[in-house]
Amino acid sequence: MQVSGGTDATVGIPPDVTEETEAFWTAASEGRLVVDQCDDCSAFSFPPRGMCRTCRSRSMRSVEVTGRGRIYSYTVNYQRWLPDLEVPYAIAIVEFPGCPGVRVVGRLRGCAPEEAAIDAEVEVGFEPGPGGYAIPSFVMLGPAP
């Protein structure tokens, strides 16, 4: 979904990319959200730690999350923590009914930050973030049920 407007998210602190997180940030640059899924028990694990949180298998693969998410909670940040940081913006913590145990933190765009709501459905997306990295950025699909 193409949604323009909102706050520039490029001012900030970029991630340190590690062996565990490289797949996530590479997929992010392609606009895809990936999490770990266990080859042995099929459980999801995120953030990736190289071990299945459910059965401790070390055999994991990256799979794309394509379904809608749901806002577990959120905040609207008004404070200019860094020079040139554009405020306000909403930060949402999103769960995915199809991927139990996965929570992803991202920005919310395409609406006024104050419209953020617990239990609202969101579509997965990304937007340009600090240091040239694409960061998770969700779009609300309507008000909370």
Binding site: G12, I13, P14, P15, V17, Q79, I91, R107, I135
Partner: peptide, 12 residues
């Protein structure tokens, strides 16, 4: 790494 890049820049 999951918090600062998306703008959760403070413990607040």
């Amino acid at each position: 790494a999951w918090l600062l890049p998306v703008g959760a820049l403070s413990p607040v």
